[in-house]
Design a protein around this nucleic acid. Structure first.
Lengths: 227, 227
DNA sequence: AATCCAGTTTAACATGGGCTAAATCGTAGG
DNA sequence: CCTACGATTTAGCCCATGTTAAACTGGATT
């Protein structure tokens, strides 16, 4: 069976959620509902369709897990989406905070030939503008190594790995601070009780609230270069 | 009321048909069904919705005519579609015969900012790769002046104005013959009774069947440069 | 003028996707 | 060990869009 656009989006979102919780055995339907901005029953029914089409397994009242076929669909969609983002930013000159919606829509629509061309014109990038890894054309998703900024040791140098937010305002703020994937900085200190963090970026000192810092994932320079 | 994607496509197609028959008072629903590759009843019902939303007038059993609001929707969509085509060909290097489907889908999806950027990167083109004029951002559609190749005087020089086909095979054949919009050539002769036409292109002689020639519209060099 | 046909429209049904309200399940706390 | 609550699923509804079959209309042909 062929997946509709909607089915592809559910599968891709389920994969993304699973990727962010590698330990968890299932993706909960409510998490999916939240990400898709849709009611819980809508997810349940779509899950049944996807199960029927062989894209996932469903443990009622527990959650779902993608099958191999489901992962294939998900990865194809994620690849298109992230390459479109990369293209819009690198080739067309948009800011990374403004491209999400266009990329979302175009990711469902662009042909393989087009996406391959975008890949080429963007210089075969390894990550999307948010730092998320781009699956290969044959459906392999690299596993990045990184940690929430709110949990790593202070007084050391790090590189921004991923920025986990689609909120344009937050993203714009991060770019004003020069905090984009690949950027090197030093974590100077972190106040206790979910207090603010102090960073040194390009010789400038910045303070980030604990929650905002939670949307940043960081790693060592060497780890960053692995993917 | 806001037009759905589907509504926009119907409106755009109706406009295109009307543009090709400037004399006709109405666009017939069957013509629309044919172009949209749907059944006649599907068109009738969509027409009723569009009429209800104020995008067109419907004279039952006669046909339809777009209102001003309908034309605005149609032109916005046509503009997006043609600029995407232009971008895919000029900036991304695709052949004009391979971009139609991608452009169709993307035309429904790209934001204003994106389409403006494509416009700019394509050098603010006046026509799409098929030679069709591109409506301005404020919704004005230039009127091109051209004639079916099957009807113009022989023994004179012309320029290809528009190629009215979405058939990739025909389009590819035309490009092999170097017959693309803007191309200068001489109509050497035309055999009677819908016989073949003989053209001189770049010093080469080509023969075209009457039907194939009907998909080409031509004009003088001066007329071509008007839009 | 009567008739017939091509083109339109209406009727009845399907499918994918969404929603709210109601029923049900699993588990944490008493 | 039971109960209650939050998460999940089922039931019943809506809308947009498509289909085929049947009814209708207007204009051309006898």
């Amino acid at each position: 069976m062929t997946a509709t656009d909607s089915m592809q989006e559910y599968l891709a979102e389920a994969f993304r959620i699973a990727y962010y919780q590698p330990e968890a055995p299932y993706v909960s339907t409510s998490a999916l509902a939240e990400e898709m901005h849709v009611s819980a029953p809508a997810v349940t029914r779509m899950v049944q369709r996807l199960k029927h089409a062989g894209f996932l397994e469903h443990e009622p009242y527990r959650g779902i897990r993608l099958t191999e076929a489901g992962e294939r669909e998900a990865l194809a969609n994620i690849r298109r989406h992230r390459l479109v983002e990369r293209f819009l930013v690198d080739v067309m000159g948009f800011g990374w905070h403004e491209v999400h919606d266009d990329a979302d829509d175009m990711g469902l629509v662009v042909s393989d030939a087009l996406v391959d061309k975008m890949d080429e014109m963007s210089g075969f990038p390894k990550r999307c503008p948010h730092g998320e890894p781009i699956p290969s054309a044959d459906g392999v998703m690299p596993r990045v190594i990184d940690y929430p900024l709110s949990e790593v040791e202070v007084d050391r140098d790090y590189v921004i790995s991923r920025v986990h937010s689609h909120d344009g305002h937050k993203l714009r703020y991060f770019s004003e601070l020069n905090l984009e994937p690949g950027k090197r900085f030093r974590l100077v200190m972190r106040a206790p009780f979910k207090g603010p963090l102090q960073l040194q970026v390009d010789g400038q000192t910045h303070f980030l609230g604990h929650e905002l810092a939670g949307t940043l994932r960081v790693c060592s320079e060497a780890e960053y270069l692995l993917v």
